[in-house]
Design a protein around this nucleic acid. Structure first.
Lengths: 337, 337
DNA sequence: TTGTAGGCGTTATCAG
DNA sequence: CTGATAACGCCTACAA
């Protein structure tokens, strides 16, 4: 700026005014400055600018990277973030943090990112070992929205979906098709989401008096691979279930693989249900019956919630729980009589 | 810092020395300062610190987000980045930029991130429409490594794999199994990688005198969905190929889906080969014959190359082309006689 | 419409 | 071992 000012025979104050787009500068002066800026290849030093404004210009996205980065779920959430950001006037970029490394999966560690001014706010996607957040909440006062997990703690802000409603709908649907031997593959039980989906299944079985062997609940970790492994266990044992509900779509895809491996037909021999309704769920073969979760909208709402509290400098609060809906496709059918 | 200094009856200069871990401070003073810092909940203002050092503390990762974010390929590359970063002394974080939005898929736009001090260096992953980079190279002088594409331009720095060698190995292997009707599904032809893989296939066919109909080359965009669509076309037409090579694993997965949809057995009715060797390729059913690309190592090397030039403040240069190897699994077999 | 003075929080430099 | 001073590049506030 000083260079430009010298070139134009004015002070850098006027240059600043012009380059920041504030008015109150004579047109001829402005043109001269803009010309000189272009000629000198001037680029603003955002470091100095942000330092001055006491903001970093970054929104931090914290998530277990190795689990989420390859997942269509995160891709969709992120699209939502971008949508939510689009309406914002000041430029904000994304910073990425791995909750698996550096023991970042901890409220205090994350809050430090904010207090050290590395980020202006945080979006925490599907954190595992959710409890660690709760343990360190008192000290935080950090603009932060948790996406995909429902906070049980009032001081956190979260956007999630109605897990119970979704699993219940899936269970009822299968039950009405005549299924009684319904098995379930858990997601990571360290997550509230994983826990709630499983509990909804357990509750349904109890309510309808389904007495299934305990191994009808198989562990899983939301990965396709774990779904396939669980599917193999379930489909090889006796009495073989007639329907399998996976706690997310990726695991349901894995179950489909296992069924093929065992030469079972879908849905004639085994019905398979998922949860998420990933963009690919409709395009798979067979297309997947699943619970639609408005992931894009969740991402968008999360970002907007965060931005709103940043712009009004008020704390992030409130819990949004989005509705889900059962999407019936080809992977489920009536039980063989 | 001023607060701490006042509490301890010294100047902030000494506080700075202690908190930055530089020596030359009396032990008793140091302890007093550390105690006060903890008591006052002091956190360093990295904004001011980075401003002072004229660095942002961020490595920018630029990639077409909607295509890459859900892909296991990016997950693997990123793991490599983290590995490469681990050995670094100063803390660096990741900033994420979408080459699909804001017309960021352009050398000048990316360079601006650096010149505006938003990032200290850039890792560009699998850029599409690669040409746009080349067009604006002269002006850059930006620490930048292109990952997954081989730069044809000397002034760029890149880390990629030997596409030609990989496709040739796959073709030869299938040829030796007796396959003559070998089809190919292209990746995005806007990428040099997509182009080179296709060209290697074309060259092989010509060399071995394979006269295949022109529709044996099907378009694709590296997505599973496009692989499935291309697979359906190839497997429904006459003369049906006996082997299909997809330009990446995701498309090969899609071809597997299409084969199942048409009740074709793999590999008895159709052999399928991929490219990448994603972590999941071995765990699918059937497991996928593919070309192993050392994606993790490529990510790691890219990051290390970038860091090295940052630390020595010398420009990023050179082209690494990593070797690939054919991994034979269950999805391919001898042609039926 | 433009200029002057000062501050943001940190660190480098050099003097004591 | 510690302190005084200045600098980084931008912006606000007020003055001319």
């Amino acid at each position: 700026m000083a260079d430009i000012a010298r070139e134009c025979g004015i002070t850098k104050m006027t240059v600043s005014r012009v380059l920041a787009g504030r008015g109150g500068v004579k047109a001829s002066t402005r043109d001269k400055i803009l010309e000189a800026a272009k000629r000198l290849n001037y680029e603003i030093n955002t470091l100095a600018q942000n330092f001055n404004f006491n903001r970093s210009g970054f929104i931090g996205v914290a998530t277990p990277l190795s689990a989420m980065l390859g997942s269509p779920y995160l891709a969709e959430v992120f699209k939502g973030f971008q949508l939510g950001l689009a309406s914002n006037e000041t430029e904000l970029n994304f910073a990425l943090f791995d909750t698996e490394s550096d023991s970042f999966n901890d409220g205090a560690k994350l809050a430090r990112l904010y207090r050290q001014k590395r980020v202006d706010g945080l979006l925490v996607v599907a954190p595992h070992t959710y409890d660690r957040f709760l343990n360190t909440l008192e000290q935080l006062h950090t603009p932060m929205v948790v996406v995909g997990e429902t906070a049980s703690c009032q001081s956190l802000c979260s956007v999630s979906c109605n897990d119970q409603q979704g699993v219940e709908a899936m269970c009822s649907y299968l039950f009405d098709l005549g299924h009684r031997k319904i098995a379930f593959i858990e997601g990571t039980t360290e997550t509230t989401t994983g826990l709630r989906r499983k509990n909804a299944y357990v509750r349904f079985c109890k309510k309808r008096g389904l007495k299934n062997p305990s191994w009808y609940i198989q562990p899983g970790n939301y990965s396709m691979q774990s779904g396939r492994a669980a599917g193999l266990v379930l489909l090889r044992a006796e009495p073989r279930p007639t329907a399998i509900i996976a706690a997310n779509d990726m695991m349901a895809y894995g179950v489909i693989e296992s069924a093929r491996q065992l030469n079972l037909r879908i849905p004639q021999d085994i019905s398979i249900g998922g949860f998420d309704d990933l963009p690919t769920a409709a395009e798979r073969f067979p297309s997947l019956t699943t619970v639609h979760q408005p992931v894009l909208e969740m991402g968008e709402r999360s970002m907007k919630t965060l931005l709103q509290s940043l712009n009004n400098s008020e704390p992030t609060t409130g819990h949004s729980v989005m509705d889900v809906s059962l999407i019936i496709r080809e992977s489920t059918g009536a039980v063989k009589s």
